[in-house]
């Protein structure tokens, strides 16, 4: 174990470090976009954005926005040398056809076998929105999730079975949280590393057997 719980930046850095050189990667809206700040130029990682681009660069500087060039969160971005544009059916063929190496998503809940719930809380008055989450979940060769391990009310977000509506079945391969990193798969959650806690403490708080 390491000394203290990880910050969002530290989680993002850990994700970035695990992305193989030269990968084609999609970063989900929200916290996963921070992973880009930790990817070095010599990693050769190429970022995909669902709205039709490979080779996406950083956010555009204020005053230099081009509103024909935006990311999935509708923020103005930039293009890197070697970038390519394509239409939506091609963009989602890259996901659904298994061409993307890694996608990084946030989540409300993840199950020990890799089920993902990240699009809908199920609250009756909530307006549902799914975007590209279901396509990414089933399409990318590896699905990394970054999130806090416990919700604000203290309930675990790594669970035996998701109670929120699912995004995809058995799709998350690795889970990065403030307190630990896990490998997920058919055999359950395998604890890779803890931060600011011990494996025994963590298993008890989660109420899970960690393999």
């Amino acid at each position: 174990m390491s000394g203290s719980a990880r910050t969002v930046d530290e989680i993002a850095a850990a994700v970035a470090a695990d992305i193989p050189e030269g990968s084609f990667v999609n970063l989900g809206i929200g916290q996963p976009t921070k992973v880009a700040e930790h990817l070095t130029a010599d990693s050769g990682v190429v970022l995909h954005t669902e709205n039709g681009m490979l080779g996406m660069g950083p956010l555009a500087a204020k005053g230099h926005e081009d509103w024909d060039l935006t990311n999935a969160g509708k923020q103005a971005v930039t293009e890197l040398p070697g970038a390519a544009y394509f239409h939506h059916a091609d963009s989602f063929a890259m996901m659904r056809g298994g061409h993307l190496d890694v996608c990084v998503l946030g989540a409300f809940q993840v199950s020990v076998t890799g089920d993902l719930a990240n699009w809908h809380t199920g609250a009756p008055d909530a307006i549902p929105a799914v975007g590209g989450a279901m396509d990414l979940a089933i399409g990318a060769k590896q699905v990394f999730v970054m999130m806090t391990l416990f919700a604000k009310d203290g309930s675990p977000k790594l669970v035996t079975e998701c109670t929120y509506p699912l995004t995809g079945l058995a799709c998350v391969t690795r889970l990065y949280t403030d307190l630990a990193t896990f490998d997920l798969g058919p055999r359950g959650a395998h604890l890779v590393e803890t931060f600011g806690t011990t494996p025994a403490e963590l298993a008890e708080r989660l109420g899970l057997d960690l393999v």
Binding site: H87, H88, A89, F92, R96, P128, A133, M134, D135, G139
Partner: peptide
């Protein structure tokens, strides 16, 4: 009325 469709399905 809302028909919510995953984005890849919408395109495809």
């Amino acid at each position: 009325e809302l028909e919510l469709v995953p984005q890849g399905n919408l395109a495809e």
